[in-house]
Nucleic acid binder design. Sequence first.
RNA 1: GCCGAAGUGGCGGAACUGGUAUACGCGCAUGACUCAAAAUCAUGUGUUCUUAUGGACAUGGGGGUUCGAUUCCCCCCUUCGGCACCA
Length: 821
Amino acid sequence: MADKYNFLEIEKKWQKKWEETNIYKVFENPDQKKKYILEMFPYPSGELHMGHMRNYSIGDVIARFNKMNGYNILHPIGYDAFGLPAENAAIKNNVHPKKWTYNNINNMRVQLKRLGISYDWDREIVTSDPEYYKWGQWLFLKFMEHDLVYRKEAPVNWCPACQTVLANEQVEGGRCWRCESVVESKQLEQWYFKITSYAEDLLDDLKMLEGWPDRVKIMQQNWIGKSEGAEVDFKLAKSKEKITVFTTRPDTLFGATFFLLAPEHPLVDELAAGTEYEKNIADFREKIKTETETDRISSEIEKNGCFTGAYVINPLTGDEIPIWVSDYVLMGYGTGAVMAVPAHDQRDFEFARKYNIPIKVVIQPYDRILNPDEMKEAYIEEGMMTNSEQFNGIPSIDGIRAVTKYLEKEGMGKLAVNYRLRDWLISRQRYWGNPIPIIYCDNCGIVSVPEKDLPVILPEDVVITQKGGSPLAESENFVNTVCPKCSGSARRETDTMDTFTCSSWYFLRYTSPKEDKLPFNLNAANYWMPVDQYIGGIEHAVLHLLYARFFTKVMHDMGIVNAKEPFSNLLTQGMVIKDGQKMSKSKGNVVDPNQIIADYGADTARLFILFASPPERDLEWSDQGVEGSFRFLNRVYRIIADNINNLEGKENIADEEDEKLRHLTHKTIKKVTLDIAERFNFNTAISAIMEFVNALSKHSPLDKGGHRGVKEAIKNLILLLAPFAPHIAEELWEMTGEKESVYLQKWPKYDEDLAAAQEITLVIQVNGKVRDRLLVSADLSKEEMEEFALNSERIKKLIEEKEVLKVVVVPGKLVNIVCKV
RNA sequence: GCCGAAGUGGCGGAACUGGUAUACGCGCAUGACUCAAAAUCAUGUGUUCUUAUGGACAUGGGGGUUCGAUUCCCCCCUUCGGCACCA
């Protein structure tokens, strides 16, 4: 026979067969229990990379395993097709973004099919198809009806390279998530989704997500950043107006010796007007405006400020305290105004020291006395309230509630909650995205595009340049329109939506991708949702995964989806690395999946990826490891091909050797089943199959023929291998005389009695150190085990001079003899 | 600074609720087959002492609990990830 199994021919043959027989096509079936297995869909960059391959290999094992276990499986694929790279490619290579994108999709589809993943290809979706993005626009309008969309002018994150604004989640450490340019601040009027209305739900429902890694939940929790405290009103000294602040420490209110406003705060100019500080303030604000986010971060330690000349009254002490403007107060959080308590807040402390503002201690620790003049840093711990009139002597932790209550009674404040989460800025000044369905009319103002006019088609006659501004604004045909209300001439919105809006509901579209009355068919969605297993990279912990949860909650409240959460279980796969580093073109350590598939076949590539490391961990690529996986598949092929005639044992021998074989078979089924189902430890599942194959080729009575357990061993070996290496499994299954696809078979059941070991290695320890091992029957009683241990020649010799204090017996495992030393 | 994850042979990694540390794979060594090579098969492979039998030491470091700790507790070190003036 040939040296190597013919993976090229086999994989082509089965991929063709799967396609012809539509084997992966799926329908809703209310009588069957379902599972929705989903991998994060790819951006069609044109080339499949190892991260994709790992993602889809993991998903396919889970999908196939569950299919064989009797579930109706939805396992779809599509493309997250809008996005900036298409425009960059357009500029660089002078191709239209649409052409570039769809070419890439065609390319990737071919590559994906070569992997042999069990996708229902009829459900493929492309987010840049009008049939899809129409419903994104529809959802935008529905969000608007539900008061979840608004337009406002505010300082926003601007990426100078991408020439567009970014949402907060899309800025990582002051840099653009996509191109890593330093993000600038700009004052612009933009569209927002009111994700903050859902802050509490998004936080609270994390509790429901038991199947999510804690890591991701904690990241989301931190991102939402809930803090509880109070809102306190401060009256201006010279007018009746008041400014409200948010604080988590109302117990320190008596210690507020100054007051701060964010530089962008609308009251700043007004307060300083006419005072000698007017010019200073104006200069200061101008300076801040030109500073980028990173400038502000880099000057982190040094806090700068400027006195406004105005005062507010501390509501509890009645003191007039000065209002300053400082760069460490953020307009976007709370009210943009802060009461400053230098004795008990480190930032306020530093600021007070720098500008010689009085420090007043109002919380004293229990073990020492603080003296404001000697303090080196703020005291932020708990303590006892002092200098606080009627609250003196109250522990600070109770003071929070007591002061808040008092403020409420006096009408000067109330309990309040604040979130770090900001509203989601969804406008993008880019071409290749979903047009925002809005029209501006001089008479009627902002007008929604009526539902019947959807979709607003993304025009193709647009020239992409790098000069900035929304490219759509250049298209006269697009921009000029008539107002749906008054029929007067009007202009279209020329910004497109953040592409993360497209990926926030695609999992719903898969449930009925051809639906044309609604974004998805409600029955289909309610049958399939939620996604039972979602698989993807950790990098989306607070991007996509937060947005998708938000969309699902909104749609739930709109009454079109039952699910409150989109993904019940989440598996975050690790990166594929080489030579200890992330694969990247610039480092030149990229391994091309296509090349691996061409050289060894998809089965080998998949097997290696799944075997080399558990899914959550990073995977170190190894060319030699791939060879090893290839060798293994060849061994399997050979061992089965060589024994194909011995499957039907005429003599049906049931001797001791046969018993051993059956034990091995059932033990392996058990191990593989549990490793896949309970732990996603595909690496150990595969190693169990390898051990099984090693044992088969070594000790088994395979080649003699006639044994009862041979057929059972071979058939089960193929079934166990099927989720990992489906092509070779199909081929071998057919070779054993089967007519029906291995994909449609039942996952093997194991017999507990057969899987249990008949014999065990009894470990004998003396004072916790292994001194002997005996092969004994597995069902020995504790007494018998102890007897065996004490009668071992070697043990006898070791303990003869010593006094035995105690004998510990662990049934089925070991005996530990404790001696006096 | 705060939060989180992880440190096991030459390498990727096993060890389920405390019970044989290093399964499986890679690499390496030796042998078989071969004119030779590749492929394949067999055997060995933590470190160290010892002729061998056997012993000692090993899961980042140091303590502790326990008959027994990679696993539980405390302290420290290193690496990686997230957040970073959020009042």
